[in-house]
Design a protein around this nucleic acid. Sequence first.
DNA 1: GGAGGATTGCGCAATTCCTCA
DNA 2: TTGAGGAATTGCGCAATCCTC
Lengths: 112, 112
Amino acid sequence: MPSKRKGTSVTSEEDEDYRSKRDRNNLAVKRSRVKSKERKMQTQTQVKDLKIKNQVLEEKIKNLTKDLKFLKDLFLAQAQTKAEKLTNEQLRQLLADDDDEKNEPEASTSAG
Amino acid sequence: MPSKRKGTSVTSEEDEDYRSKRDRNNLAVKRSRVKSKERKMQTQTQVKDLKIKNQVLEEKIKNLTKDLKFLKDLFLAQAQTKAEKLTNEQLRQLLADDDDEKNEPEASTSAG
DNA sequence: GGAGGATTGCGCAATTCCTCA
DNA sequence: TTGAGGAATTGCGCAATCCTC
């Protein structure tokens, strides 16, 4: 726009440089903030999702535990009734509450 | 032109008001941003925690499922071997895969 | 080695939220 | 209930810094 020469030339040139630089930075700032906001929101929905998933898993565990207890009781009762070859001790070992363990229950007992 | 003077000079009074107001707001802004940053960080750790908890639950489910299968097989084999009063059909019902169900497995069958 | 976008702390101003007479 | 006044939040620009090519 201003085709100024010498005198103010350096200044106006610097001004233009400065301005365009600022403008570019302002755009960069906007981009950056949009991105930041997006990330923020997405971690929030992530929290929500994880909480839900968590509940589902808890529920599943509840059901599995219940089923397991049911089967254990059933099995125990039947075995007892039938007076299997397994001794009570063996049974107890076999059915030891392994719900809290991290390892395979089968490995915990080694019946000869 | 800034004509100061006059203790009650509107200008200087307004200036002071303005300044103190700005200063207060600047502090508020700082507080707000600190809080915001804290919240941000805490939801991030929350995500991390939830992910870990989730893994633990998954693992637990894996183990429970395995235990359940083990017991089912055991029970089934034994029942079969012993030729229980329960028919195969009844057994099948009783042991129907209820892992995916949301209801109590006991209710699904009414053995007489 | 420096140009240029990305981040970030900061202040301003507008707006929103909150409280209390 | 209302509305005035102050705190909190938010969009925005500046400048310093970080980061990368």
